[in-house]
Simulated assay, not measured.
Amino acid sequence: MIYTVTLNPSIDYIVRLDEVKVGSVNRMDSDDKFAGGKGINVSRVLKRLDIDSKATGFIGGFTGKFITDILASEGIAGDFVQVAEDTRINVKIKADAETEINGAGPTISPAELDGLKKILAALTAADTVVFAGSSPKNLGNAIYKELIELTRQTGAQVVCDFEGQTLIDSLAFEPVLVKPNNHELGDIFGVTLTELPDIEKYARQLLEQGAQQVIISMAGDGALLVTKEASYFAQPIKGQVKNSVGAGDSMVAGFTGKLVQTGDVLEAFKWGVACGTATTFSDDLATAAYIKEIYEKVEVEKL
């Protein structure tokens, strides 16, 4: 089974209007509410690929119920730890300029944290766990080291979608996949990365530090998969960019789901590229039909 861990999920409240006038009453043209959080996005895209997963993490209050109701309506299993405080709301204003106001999230008690640890401790070597996104403020991202180590002790594999020090710390646990973009990769090593040979060189350093596979996403410039055996470049696919939110999560879902399903790293990469690209060209997470349409356009070459 694939598990997705979202420590600080959210309702993503999307508000659309022509412009924001500070200090005045603003009336929106339209709005949407989505179940948000990187791990939750992974579960939702996996479902579009007909791959089962179980979503876990912390959930609370009426906002948390909105999220679990959405997941249930999409046929996604959940095993969340109920917490005393409400799940956060993130407001994303799409106007003449995009503005985000992200909630801090609930405070997690020691007993609530222990509840999640019990879920992870019950996993087996047949499981793969996707850890992604930020942690509630009172826990801090350092908590991931403890949770990932606990998970690996069961024999389960892990996928880690983090930035910066959190990503570096995860490498000690030999994740199946890490997926920084080229800017995040450059920040890790204190360099600016724009050329493919340099990006490949530094991606290989992540392999040397423990990662089993590395995908470097490069927005409109394609994507790079680096394995111990070879490197592969996926050509960029042309289309109208509508949505950057969830594109990386979609790529993680496509790669992880198909790797668990087929064991074929290259095929998993193609599906990862298809899922990420399809979401980029969609208003929300991409539909199953659109992912399959984009998959037919994916071109990968061995470097």
Rank of each mutant, 00 (worst) to 15 (best):
K145Q: 13
V245I: 11
E229N: 13
V5A: 11
V298F: 15
A223D: 11
S170K: 00
M218T: 00
Q261W: 15
G37N: 01
T87C: 12
L147C: 07
E208K: 12
Q235S: 07
G23L: 07
Y13I: 02
I199T: 04
H183G: 06
T256V: 11
Y3P: 05
R48W: 06
V45K: 07
P110A: 13
Q153R: 10
P136C: 00
K302A: 14
A95D: 10
S231A: 15
D69T: 05
K302F: 10
S134P: 14
L259Q: 01
S109L: 14
A97Y: 15
E301A: 06
A122E: 07
D114G: 03
F189S: 05
K270R: 12
D221S: 08
N141C: 09
P9N: 00
Q212V: 06
A203W: 07
T68K: 06
V158P: 00
N41Q: 05
T279M: 03
G210N: 02
T56V: 09
E267D: 12
L7G: 04
G37L: 11
N141V: 04
G23Y: 13
T287Y: 04
T194P: 00
F189L: 04
Y232Q: 01
G239Q: 12
K33S: 12
K242C: 02
L303P: 11
I59S: 03
I59R: 01
Q212T: 01
G105S: 12
A121F: 06
D284W: 08
Q157V: 08
Y295K: 10
A126Q: 10
V265L: 08
V241M: 12
A289M: 10
T194C: 02
A126N: 13
L303W: 14
I294A: 07
G186Q: 08
F131D: 00
G60N: 02
L113Q: 14
S135F: 09
A234S: 12
K65G: 03
I291E: 06
N182W: 01
I216L: 03
I40M: 13
T277G: 06
E19L: 06
S24W: 14
D32C: 12
G64R: 09
T227S: 15
K242M: 01
V159P: 02
I93G: 02
A122P: 02
V191M: 02
L259D: 12
K38Q: 05
L224T: 03
L46V: 07
L116K: 01
L303E: 08
V252A: 05
S24M: 15
Q212A: 02
G210Y: 00
L285E: 07
A219Y: 09
